[in-house]
């Protein structure tokens, strides 16, 4: 039996003026599944994320989050999503704790409950000791951990990660990749991870290859390898995106 659908995208299109950014995308993301949205720069990954979080709006196609239509039931739909944007979105002058309390307030979580959840998430990410530090004082990897903790604070069903490891060193990247995969496995969290880095993919992941606004492949790692007749994801990605992946 297939797991619950956390995200359903149906015939979604979007254009910046005359320039088409996404062209009739349709796919689904399931609970407990880690889906890597693979594509070179400019493929449309960030646009897709902006549509899923309703920063942009499209009248061509539908998006449903945990069964809630994003257009009709926006607030209920957005309550099911946690997101880490490509660019850091923390308040640099506030402490780690204050940033997380602010996010909790936006999601209607009371102070006491927020405190418990913040401790839980920061402990899990080994950031509890640094909770009183200003975000500005943290390094890139630690800032990302705080952003992941924030994205998980309201216990979402779907976690969106828009190239969260860009600019991080290898150990920091690896720690984040491992942690997110573990979360999906153990908690049933659905993950949509936009990346153009092949080495962030685990063998059990689901792949969505996006190129020039269109889905070029949608399946497990093995299915994509079979589809392209290649031996590695790097080759498959290069073939599907005509040599533009890194």
């Amino acid at each position: 039996m297939k797991a619950t659908i956390a995200l359903a995208v149906d015939q979604l299109s979007f254009a910046y003026g005359a320039k088409k950014a996404l062209d009739r995308l349709s796919f689904q993301i399931y609970a407990g599944e880690c889906t890597i949205l693979l594509g070179p720069n400019g493929a449309g990954k960030t646009t897709l994320f902006s549509l899923i979080t309703r920063l942009y709006d499209s009248h061509d196609g539908h998006i449903a989050l945990c069964g809630f239509d994003l257009q009709q039931q926006t607030c209920k739909a957005l309550a099911t999503v946690g997101i880490v944007f490509q660019q850091t979105t923390l308040d640099m002058d506030m402490s780690v704790m204050d940033n997380l309390y602010y996010h909790a307030a936006l999601h209607g979580i009371g102070r006491k409950q927020a405190g418990q959840r913040i401790e839980q998430e920061l402990q899990r990410l080994n950031m509890w000791e640094r909770r009183q530090e200003k975000v500005r004082q943290l390094n890139g990897g630690h800032k990302r951990r705080v952003e992941i903790a924030r994205a998980l604070l309201h216990q979402p069903s779907l976690l969106l990660l828009d190239e969260p490891t860009v600019g991080l060193d290898v150990p920091s990247r690896q720690a984040i990749v491992d942690y997110v995969h573990q979360l999906a496995r153990e908690t049933g969290l659905a993950v949509l991870w936009a990346s153009h880095l092949i080495d962030e993919i685990y063998p059990g992941d689901h792949l969505l290859v996006l190129h020039k606004g269109q889905i070029k492949a949608n399946g497990t790692v093995n299915e994509v390898l079979t589809l392209t007749g290649t031996a590695s994801i790097r080759e498959a990605s290069q073939q599907l995106t005509q040599g533009e992946a890194t």
Partner: peptide, 10 residues
């Protein structure tokens, strides 16, 4: 980018 966190709130 911090405006995004506000605008994607439920």
């Amino acid at each position: 980018g911090s405006m995004r966190i506000l605008l994607v709130s439920p």
